[in-house]
Design a protein around this nucleic acid. Structure first.
Lengths: 347, 347
DNA sequence: GTAATAGTGTCTCTCAGACACTATGAG
DNA sequence: CTCATAGTGTCTGAGAGACACTATTAC
């Protein structure tokens, strides 16, 4: 029997037994009436949760807020909130939540890519009441520290590797972020290319917090988990771990056939920076020369600005000034970039 | 609904109505109340809608129900209904709706692929009240006539071409279902089986009602549209037209990289039948010889049964007996099948 | 100087697409 | 017989991946 990833098998549900509502009458009638008085039904809360991804110092980070009360008090969770019934669309609600948590305003916010990821509504996912969450996925360029926004007890960018060690579903031999990048570990994670492991990615987790990306000023009163320190996997509240995993897989797939990787970068960028995005999100090193040629060969992916890097280049180890590009007008990459590996994902 | 005594804040969130984004007070306090009594919020109804696609006589059909009351009384709509709060997951709700509408029971229903498509929650999409719909997409093998299920005034399989003439986004020169086999065009294609396909699809609208798919006992009072007669595009109720368009695009993309096309077929099938699925869903003719080789070369896509067609082959105009295959165990096609042309279209 | 990067050239292998061709069976 | 299909052989062009190589800059 087929069925891919998120597919569900169908089982026959029976419901009659426990249905407290009228037995004889046509369900449609009930629905009709319920349509006018939804309170005849058990209420379901509708929220949006946002998985906002960004790159800080060469590592993927996700925006998280600290919960100030039970359940999961003190735990990290995805930012989100209730949809304002009838007054905003789901997309608008997600954008609003993102803006509140990041403190971004219009101009900067426009550079953020936001798309719907999926909905989560398993019974019991919130112990208090039935809640359906519509999850959104956001790609943002390097952002300043998260605002402990208006309605967030504490917000911070957490390194993804602290939450999803190894990187994700579909157990692959290639462990994206942690493994293979550490000095002591065996050569290359994927095994493909032992040498060119990018040092940036390597030191990212630590180096970042200390120097380039000092963690956001923690909400003072919150004593609990500061930004997690590398090793022990952080468990997100509710089913947010699963949502995050789904989001990561979506992000990895999406940059294959769309130019959205550029959404992680400044308006102008070098091919090397773009390659770093792919390497970080996919968790695998890419062949620099071929990547370069490939990107320039896909119509509409990037367009030249005619300029080159001029200022001091952070972390540069030397080399010629790279040319600067901006995002092109293509919405789909054609042909798509191919993720290395993939073999294992099939079975 | 259950509530736990000590509940605090469902999530840092302000109550929608007030949302003073209160200066001093901790938002979490308000959350406390909000989480505790969701009725403090304007209620949002949560429903699932199912886009069930099947192939009947060489044309894509979608399951639809006729609305028995306002709004959109008499119009066709996607089958769907309210999620039973706290007692079923979204997936289960979708499966339940599909079962009710198709009248399918366990064994047959297990062969149906069902996956979440996306959520729709624009304000005003239902004139009566705020409703968020989680849409599902189903691929089903040729199914019998739709049951006027327990809660459906009338249910029927409508030819997609009657609703989305021309087929959908990305307006292509290739018109999916209507475009005829151009004599002189290379062998295969939508034009493959000129006899069965064309006329069928064309007359399907009428023929179906009279012979092959007699409309489910029409809801007597509903005078409105019988199964739409070919030409005038049917407008679905609510935003279901857009949902259907999204579903079709998803289906077209999904069969590229998953073996889900086989979900439209019987447990065993020929390569020619499989190709007909692709041609119908993509609305474009494929090169028969290359398709054949390609399918057999993708690991895990199909596996041979060792048998060949034996019975009378409907619509056959001669030729050798085709070998029979069944679906393989791959979840992803590797490398993927490529859709002809491709242009722009991204969400 | 060394080391690392930007960018180009070019080879090989895979695969998609096109065509040619044989074999089979319905009418 | 004709004609449409099932299935195989094979060529060509595009493109991915690998490697070699030059040029440029930080240290």
């Amino acid at each position: 029997m087929r069925r891919t990833g998120a597919a569900v098998g169908i089982r026959r549900q029976h419901t009659a037994a426990t249905d407290p509502r009228g037995a004889g009458e046509r369900p449609d009638e009930r629905d009709f009436l319920a349509g006018y008085d939804p309170r005849a039904f058990d209420p379901i809360a509708v929220t949006v949760d946002v998985v906002a991804l960004t790159l800080r110092g060469g590592a993927l980070h996700v925006l998280a807020v600290r919960r100030g009360g039970p359940p999961f008090e003190g735990a990290w969770a995805l930012p989100g909130g209730f949809v304002r019934a009838g007054r905003e669309s789901l997309d608008e609600a997600a954008a609003r939540e993102l803006a509140e948590e990041t403190g971004l305003r219009a101009p900067a916010l426009d550079r953020v890519h936001l798309e719907q990821l999926g909905s989560y509504g398993d019974p019991g996912r919130d112990p208090r009441m039935p809640v359906v969450s519509i999850a959104y996925l956001a790609f943002a360029p390097g952002l300043p520290d998260a605002h402990a926004g208006s309605d967030a007890a504490g917000a911070a960018w957490l390194p993804l590797e602290a939450i999803l060690p190894g990187g994700q579903p579909a157990a692959e031999p290639s462990r994206p972020f942690e493994q293979g990048r550490r000095p002591g570990t065996h050569g290359g994670g994927t095994g493909r290319r032992p040498a060119p492991v990018r040092p940036e990615a390597q030191k990212s987790a630590e180096a970042q917090r200390s120097a380039e990306a000092p963690e956001p000023a923690e909400s003072p009163e919150a004593a609990a988990p500061a930004v997690p320190s590398g090793q022990a996997p952080v468990r997100l509240a509710f089913d947010h771990g699963r949502i995050l995993a789904d989001a990561l897989e979506r992000a990895r797939a999406k940059i294959e056939y769309t130019p959205l990787a550029t959404a992680f970068l400044a308006p102008t960028f070098t091919i090397g920076e773009l390659r770093a995005v792919y390497e970080t999100v996919w968790g695998a090193p890419l062949h620099a020369a071929n990547f370069h040629r490939k990107v320039l060969s896909v119509p509409g992916f990037v367009e030249s600005t005619g300029r080159t890097e001029t200022d001091a280049r952070p972390g540069s180890r030397g080399g010629p000034r790279a040319r600067l590009y901006r995002s092109g007008d293509a919405r789909l990459l054609h042909p798509a970039l191919l993720r290395p590996d993939r073999e294992a994902a099939v079975r």
